[in-house]
């Protein structure tokens, strides 16, 4: 099978990109564009919404419709786009800062509302762009420029949060697991309702540096060794679980999405329901 490249969704002349060597963001973006190609989406029917941070820079490399907005609010903007024009393919690319730190409220509500869009959360456990500060996904005890002696707070499990908040599809992968990552993105795009692909991603420049994984290869190896299937993860003893993380699909269901429900409301209001 010929592998789809996705270059047509890249803005001409935009490369090289701005991300550091060993950063996972470019890999995730590449997987998304290849998925667009596989699904044969037209550029004018895709709307990619981004917020702020290293991940928030992704829109500048795209030749599709794009909307680049404020920190943490990308999902709320995307909700307006999708609610008004349900035919559009809406994808929101966020970091852990955008999605669950400053934007946590929009994240749980977008999942609860089950708005039919795909959120891709590139979780690198810290604020990369502003110099490696702790975020809501920095694990307890880990180091960052604002937790120099260890993080006193606990981290969010982003995937679990989306599942309980009502998402129709939730999966986690890493840039190391390239093929699985693309498969998850494809399943998410094809799913009606709110879908999330969380990507545990290397930020060697900041998170890696503060946590003795400054070398890009070390970080990739960490993702490779510590990312285990859900089944394997469940079999681990409690203290071991702290060192590993589960990858794979966490929920997959078909609850009616917001627009389908709204259509019923509209029919009722006009006496056609």
């Amino acid at each position: 099978m010929l592998e789809a490249g996705g270059e047509e969704y890249l803005r001409a002349g935009a490369l090289p990109h701005m991300w550091c060597p060993g950063c996972g963001i470019g890999i995730v973006l590449g997987a998304l564009l290849r998925t667009f190609a596989e699904l044969e989406y037209a550029k004018n029917e895709i709307v990619v919404v981004t917020g702020i941070g290293c991940t928030g820079k992704a829109d500048d490399y795209l030749s599709t419709n794009a909307l680049h907005v404020t920190h943490g609010r990308a999902l709320a903007f995307a909700t307006g786009v999708k609610a008004y024009k349900p035919g559009l393919k809406v994808v929101v690319i966020m970091g852990d800062g955008d999605s669950v730190t400053i934007g946590g409220n929009h994240f749980i509500h977008a999942a609860r509302r089950n708005i039919d869009l795909t959120a891709i959360v590139i979780n690198n456990f810290n604020f990369g762009m502003t110099g490696g500060q702790a975020s809501a996904t920095t694990p307890g005890g880990k180091f960052s420029s604002t937790t120099l002696y260890g993080n006193p707070e606990r981290d969010f499990d982003v995937s679990a949060l989306a599942c309980v908040a009502g998402a129709n599809y939730v999966a986690r992968s890493t840039p190391y697991h390239g093929w699985a990552l693309k498969q998850h993105i494809k399943e998410a795009l094809c799913k009606k309702g709110f879908s999330l692909v969380e990507v545990f991603s290397p930020c060697p420049t900041n998170y890696g540096k503060y946590n003795e994984m400054g070398d890009p290869l070390k970080m990739l190896n960490w993702l490779k060794e510590k990312g285990v299937s859900r089944e394997k993860y469940e079999q681990l003893e409690e203290p071991e679980k702290e060192d590993y993380f589960a990858i794979g699909t966490f929920c997959d269901r078909n609850s009616p999405d917001f627009n389908s429900r709204y259509e019923e409301i509209r029919a009722r209001a006009t006496g056609k329901g």
């Binding site: 609010r73 307006g80 409220n105 509500h109």
Partner: peptide, 24 residues
């Protein structure tokens, strides 16, 4: 038309802007 009750006023303006860009 479309009516949406949002989670806060931050999201309200965001959704309004998103919808307007989709032609509303």
């Amino acid at each position: 038309g479309m009516f949406m009750q949002m989670e806060d006023e931050i999201a309200s303006v965001a959704a309004v802007v998103g919808a307007s860009l989709a032609g509303a």
